[in-house]
Design a protein around this nucleic acid. Sequence first.
DNA 1: CTGTTAGCGCGTTCAA
DNA 2: TTGAACGCGCTAACAG
Lengths: 341, 341
Amino acid sequence: MPVTLKDIAARLNLSITTVSRALGGYPDVAAETRQRVLQAAREMGYHPNVIAQSLQRRRSNTLGFVIPATERYLSDPFFLELLSGIGDGAAQRGFDLLVSTCAPLSSEERTVYERMIRGKRVDGMVVARTRKEDERISYLVQEGFPMAAFGRTALALDFPFIDVDGEEGVGQAMAHLLGSGHRRIGFISPPVYLMFTEHRLAGYRRALERSGLGFDASLVVEGNLSQASGYEMMGRLLDLGDPPSAVVCGNDLMALGAIHAIQERGLAVGRDIAVVGFDDIPLAEHCHPPLTTVRQPIYEIGKMASEMVIQIIEGRELQERQVILQPQLVIRESTVTTERG
Amino acid sequence: MPVTLKDIAARLNLSITTVSRALGGYPDVAAETRQRVLQAAREMGYHPNVIAQSLQRRRSNTLGFVIPATERYLSDPFFLELLSGIGDGAAQRGFDLLVSTCAPLSSEERTVYERMIRGKRVDGMVVARTRKEDERISYLVQEGFPMAAFGRTALALDFPFIDVDGEEGVGQAMAHLLGSGHRRIGFISPPVYLMFTEHRLAGYRRALERSGLGFDASLVVEGNLSQASGYEMMGRLLDLGDPPSAVVCGNDLMALGAIHAIQERGLAVGRDIAVVGFDDIPLAEHCHPPLTTVRQPIYEIGKMASEMVIQIIEGRELQERQVILQPQLVIRESTVTTERG
DNA sequence: CTGTTAGCGCGTTCAA
DNA sequence: TTGAACGCGCTAACAG
């Protein structure tokens, strides 16, 4: 049986309240009494029952995060990095993290969020991979529930978020490719329902227009962020009568798939076809050739997001409710022509 | 304010008890009363307070999982797949999942486990990446706390686990390489403190001895499961006066790093040097060349593990307390000589 | 400085 | 079939 305040109180002939206060570090407790309580607690191996504390304080000290698992075999390292950022940020402030997975846009999604929130399981939520019309966000905002998102939406809603300027990021990538002489540049797009797709596509489009090349819809294909889809979509681009000499991918995973497709056809990535990704997951550095990509600090964003939610939960004002970070292009060999492929 | 049983009871002029019973599906409630309660609950948007339920039932219906995060930027897709398996298995049985990250072998590790367990936050734990002397397991066994592990230990402890026969898996890989004519085969080992290292190394060693080649310690190097270390360790093997013509890696991530190192030196993976991994993460199929690897069903193992823990929590007997699955070698182009590299 | 009382929201006796 | 009373373990108001 676990030891409770009651047990300590009984042993010391004190009231439960006094024990609670001594342990809680309240000032109105005799120094000697506090010592006795502390020692007894240690000896008896006391650990507070967090559930009981939560009920009483009406605070679970827990954050919720639902991983939008597109495929059954979820494998995007992106989420793991984000998850550890969120978890570490939470842990540093004494919060736990409750995690679920749920297919985005599915009917259960609402249920999963409701269960966490209405059941008082969590005090706040972190939302990732926001969508143009994001029902998760409108639900949370409507409920007035503490939250922070990684990403914006197209909704006219004011909520706390952190995002990376995807238009700028892809703009940098395009400038790099155009500067290297590329004139036909393809784009393997993420699903259009995602908000960041709009930004990244805008970066692509604007760069083309500014350079006077103009937008060519046949060079844009849509994948689902997995390597498999990057592989497939790159195949389609290569099958074009006049295939592109460079391709920008909506994320690193699709870029890896694209590299595979290119190499499988005996072409050299970098020399024959340049490839750019987005994210800079650790794999990007160690694939072959190393991937030029737009870096976003995923871990840090996760950490910031959980810190923001906790600030809100604790009723403190946020200095910055909406943060847009500037990404940075990391140039590696997948866009460099000296590469042997 | 959230609606509670009390609110429903007040509205219907019933006692809290009756409302609770009607909602809980107990038989001793008039059919008509039940209908009224159900309807009122729906109308008022009632959701049970899970925290209060947990306190009363002395069950949180939550599983705990601590990700052993070796690096700060945790990126092994292995854990994401395992996590989603655990989460799905738990969700199917009405359990939530509480997740933390913690560096393995660190001093905080004990604290993290204690916090979850002694605080009654979770009813059971899933442990992954077991170690030869695993303090997490000895702690849990000693506490008699419900748990299931992915992996065995060297401890003389009887606990529920699922594992994959790593000796057999590497044995298959070695048979394949030896059958292809390789005579100098390297091994990029996982950290020796991990239990599965012993099994996989045994498979390597035994195959060499059986084939009469004998074990050569200079062909074994130790990495830390990251691509970066696979890259580095492969470099060391290539720097040998008489480098191996094939290498077996302790996991896929290190294999990807090894491939990078090989290609960077202008050698062709498959033709010049064969590479085998372990895990079959989704990336293995879509790197270049596609990776020959020993497949273990990570998602399914995660699911089984959470199911096992829940069985134990619910006091039902386990049919199989200790499961050892047979892995399967998946042959792809990284070990096939026709590959151009 | 300490104890008594009350209550967080729920489930579970035991009577009626 | 229903309700009153109690307790899960803890914190907070108020006395003393």
